[in-house]
């Protein structure tokens, strides 16, 4: 059985580069395969969103398998919004059986934001309970309630954390809780306010958490000034400082994408210099083709071989 490549890269101390892939709103495998082709070679793993923001898309599990078949290493995102503990545990077993080796445990965006606001949110477990559950299944070989599995799943367990959401003073504590629950790597919410992020990292280091968990800084390249403003105003938990918005506005519309990439690269370089940051997670929303350029410009195009 092969184990997680991402885990190996992180354990060996390499600065990891991961990216994100949003599945299509349809049954078309090509869309996933094309995205995979674009990213292949530039990133260590690709994580596939699970009906992000409550919008119905091709399933995360299926997309992961498609990517795996393209030769990439997928990270399976799993949200607790849509499945109860029976479905979740069943899917965890299924993922492992299909050869997926990474799982990112999330609660998920509220259904009211998506295209199915009438849906009943499940929220049987929360993200921390999901982490715990995967850990239990993998390490103790039992499901919730203690029943034994014939073969435990093999998954590298990740979680997300947002250093920018309220209450700020509790954010590090919350990460500690996720680590205690069993998270092995963390992807953060997209970072624009590097100052706040650094403060958070200070707290993380004070608690020694950077030694217990691999932290990947989340980055989303800005396409335009409008996007910057929109995110700042409308997306809860995202903190886009005014300077960044101004900087995007200061260039003509046609050059804003370029400027966005420039900012992204600067941020990545900053992240590399922060103690306890183990990698970067690039979330180029519906702009996956920008990833190779970013990775190249950041000087990270040479991905290590760990197999």
């Amino acid at each position: 059985m092969t184990s997680s490549r991402l885990k190996k890269i992180l354990e060996k101390g390499h600065f990891a580069v991961t990216s994100e892939c949003g599945p299509p709103k349809g049954a078309d495998p090509k869309a996933v395969q094309d995205k995979g082709k674009t990213l292949k070679g530039f990133v260590d793993s690709v994580n596939v969103t699970d009906n992000q923001t409550g919008v119905v898309r091709l399933s995360s599990m299926a997309s992961c398998v498609l990517l795996k078949n393209e030769g990439l290493e997928p990270v399976l995102q799993m949200v607790t919004r849509d499945r109860n503990r029976i479905a979740l545990q069943s899917d965890i077993l299924g993922a492992s059986a299909l050869g997926l080796r990474n799982i990112l445990c999330l609660t998920g965006d509220h259904q009211s934001f998506g295209n199915q606001p009438q849906a009943k949110g499940v929220f049987d477990l929360d993200s921390i309970q999901l982490i715990q559950t995967v850990r239990k299944m993998r390490d103790q070989g039992v499901i919730l309630g203690g029943e034994k599995l014939t073969l435990p799943p093999d998954l590298f367990i990740g979680a997300a954390e947002n250093p920018f959401a309220d209450p700020l003073n509790y954010r590090a504590a919350r990460l500690a809780k996720k680590v205690a629950a069993g998270a092995e790597f963390i992807q953060t919410q997209c970072i624009y306010n590097i100052g706040r992020f650094k403060e958070w990292m200070v707290e993380i280091r004070e608690r020694g958490l950077h030694k217990k968990v691999f932290i990947l800084g989340g980055i989303t390249p800005l396409k335009s000034a409008r996007m910057a403003e929109y995110m700042s105003k409308n997306v809860a938990g995202i903190d886009v400082p005014a300077e960044i918005i101004e900087r995007m506005k200061s260039v003509p519309a046609g050059d804003q994408r370029k400027e966005g990439i420039k900012i992204t690269i600067e941020l990545i370089k900053e992240l590399q210099g922060i103690e306890g940051v183990h990698g970067v997670h690039i979330m180029a929303i519906e702009w996956e083709d920008a990833v190779p350029e970013i990775v190249r410009e950041a000087g990270l195009a040479q991905r290590p071989d760990v197999d």
Partner: peptide, 14 residues
């Protein structure tokens, strides 16, 4: 909104 027992989620603002 999500009935979290180990909250908060990352969406809280102000």
């Amino acid at each position: 909104s999500k009935s979290l027992f180990n909250g908060p989620c990352g969406g809280s603002k102000d």
